[in-house]
Amino acid sequence: MLKTYILKKLLLLIPLLLGITFITFALIKALPGDPVTSLAGERANPETIERIRRQIGTDKNFISQFAGYVSLIAKGDLGRSYYTQRPVAQDIAEKFPNTLKLAIVAMLIAAPAGIVFGIISAAGSGRENFLGNFPSFVSIGGISIPVFWLGLILMYIFSFYLKWLPPSGTGDFRFLILPAVTLSLPAGASIARILKTAMLEISGQPFIKTARAKGLKENVIWFRHVLKNAMIPLVTIIGLDFGSYLNGAVLTETIFGWDGIGRFTMEGIIKRDYPVVMGCLLTGTTAFILINMFVDLLYRYIDPRVKYE
């Protein structure tokens, strides 16, 4: 039952990815601007432009370009960068693990912190005291802070002033701490906000009143009844955030010079390096879909009432 469900989902992945490839491809081609002019320089003669155009294949019509790209992907190839001539798949294979590492560490910080703050602010809501206001203020602050600025301030404090951590670059765990903390703050805050809303909604339901009426202790009610029922929105938001991290954290990676997918994609977009943009977006979307499939499967373990068709 579960196996056929997973198999069916994985098979559905193929048309889905084909659709995404087509749309991304069409969008990129629809953008004005020609990669050839930026490749050849402004004063290139028409023959050079024609030669480059033939070389990278933009002289053919849209359908045959798309067909060419799909047959390339089918062979596990993502083409070569227009600029460096390096295979895009190889570049992504080098950079994706960095993005993944950053995403995992950031989520390991964001999820527990967000859950704790969410619970505290749900339990303390309605109270006009420090306990009631502080957690909601922290979570509003978390979604309002410009990440690039937070990154710079953390870099200033921990790298330049205290000299504890390296300011930027890609490397061992010490390089990972500052970007991960920077990235985790907005996600942690949004986890806290979603969890708070979900828990407050559940705490107003009749079965909680029953639990209170039969004399259960408050912390049993909050942890065993309310939190457990708020797990589905919680897992969903964690999955979505984690999935979006895998598309690369453009700003965080830019500030800390972290060699990940986000910066690579952005540079590709700005230079109109189409194979790079396509490859990155495809990798990111595939990862995003897989993560959300996994979240779908988790629902069953969280809530046995969930049925897969």
Partner: peptide, 9 residues
Amino acid sequence: LLAIGISIV
């Protein structure tokens, strides 16, 4: 990334 893509046009 979409906003970046649109803004370079």
